[in-house]
Design a protein around this nucleic acid. Structure first.
Lengths: 227, 227
DNA sequence: AATTAAAATTAGACACGTCTAAAAATATAT
DNA sequence: ATATATTTTTAGACGTGTCTAATTTTAATT
């Protein structure tokens, strides 16, 4: 039996389920299907059903047989607290320990379950109360408030925006090959120099080279604009 | 049983047992009794027996029925790695997050189980490769080498030594009351001004006040001498 | 509407780590 | 050396979280 703190009855597994349900159900707490959760967590639907019952008993989700689960207020607060911890730790790893932004996820998956409110408050302060993590995702406040995404599709930012390429929407092999071929990589700084109204193509600067990318590409790349 | 590279991962529970066995058996890996482990871990002897078998199967301890367990080389290396992590995290909490030295243990008990060699290497570097933790206990090297205790009994340090009071040997209520009455607290800086050969009493400076303490007191207080 | 396909649930099993209660081995005392 | 006390182990159980295989419910198709 594992105790992480005196007043927390949440197990690691429960926290992971809540987090998955939050990500799938969005801020509106839409109902999420059993299979969707199983896919995301790489587990079996039967395991999800078991946990759904358990979380429902604890008042963390609303669960109706065959109708999926949706987070309660209490459930989403818990999920947000875990997400907050995850993103603060990721920020710590990148800002303080010089990790690359794309190698911190696994470690943060472990760190996010450390139970100590004081620890998280201190970490938050130590990092200068960051509002977004290295992937451009917003860090929920202590109260569970969460801002809109800081990362944007490259296609959606105005001309002259500069930022870091933090993700791809469609990580298909052909697309990744395209990026490779054009020597673009996640983590690169990108500046939008010019936008062609007609076809939505962009002139960008990346690695100090100018290249032209199509709208298709631009709608597949996430950028975290610099302040 | 045949393994390809002994890639068996350690569970949290196994790590905790190894750590307890290490602390009880000392650097010489003395055999440790079932009850001693149960006491230290606040568990039942029967649970310890179960785990002893398991650890023995994995080659982490030598176990003979009714004769206790002793760490193998592999087992002590694992224990030292957990202890290293524990002490590095404690150092982080105190040095970087401004925790008091006496409030970090619980949190470090959780953090010590985070699995990522790279993380610990980076943390070590970030902290400036500390050789001792906030309690004056030595931090094992990456290879598992461990130095002698840095903390010493106040009675054993030479005159003119200055350091921080990092622990008590006997934490009985009367002794703690004594400390309180003399406005001494763990964490205080202490300087040894004078030592009386005859009765071993000391003249010390603490909180900018000079007081005289008996040898009995001095053999109950741990000090971590400054470099 | 009936049939087929997909999704979700149940039933039963298992590994892990723990426990209690009873039995066995070892240590202590008379 | 025998009886008693202590320590340790075994046997059997439980809760958590997972799984497979079979069943039930819902969705999609003809």
């Amino acid at each position: 039996m594992y105790f992480y703190g005196n007043f927390s009855t949440m197990t690691r597994s429960e926290e992971n389920y809540l987090k998955a349900i939050f990500h799938l159900g969005g801020l509106e707490h839409k109902a999420v299907s059993t299979n969707a959760i199983a896919d995301r967590m790489e587990t079996k639907p039967s395991s999800v059903t078991d946990m759904a019952k358990k979380l429902s008993e604890k008042g963390l989700v609303a669960y109706t047989k065959y109708k999926g689960v949706s987070l309660s207020k209490k459930g989403s607060q818990t999920a947000l607290s875990v997400i907050r911890k995850h993103r603060l730790w990721e920020t710590f790893l990148v800002d303080k320990l010089d990790f690359m932004w794309d190698e911190v996820h696994e470690i943060a998956e472990q760190l996010e379950h450390i139970q100590s409110e004081k620890l998280i408050d201190r970490l938050d302060a130590f990092l200068g109360f960051p509002k977004q993590d290295p992937h451009g995702d917003p860090i929920p406040s202590k109260k569970g408030e969460i801002q809109k995404e800081y990362k944007k599709l490259l296609a959606d930012v105005p001309v002259a925006t500069e930022g870091i390429c933090v993700g791809v929407k469609n990580s298909s092999a052909p697309f990744l090959r395209y990026m490779d071929k054009n020597s673009m990589a996640l983590g690169d700084t990108i500046e939008v120099l010019e936008k062609e109204e007609f076809d939505g193509s962009l002139q960008i600067k990346i690695r100090n080279k100018q290249i032209r990318i199509s709208n298709d590409i631009a709608t597949n790349l996430f950028i975290r604009p610099n302040e």
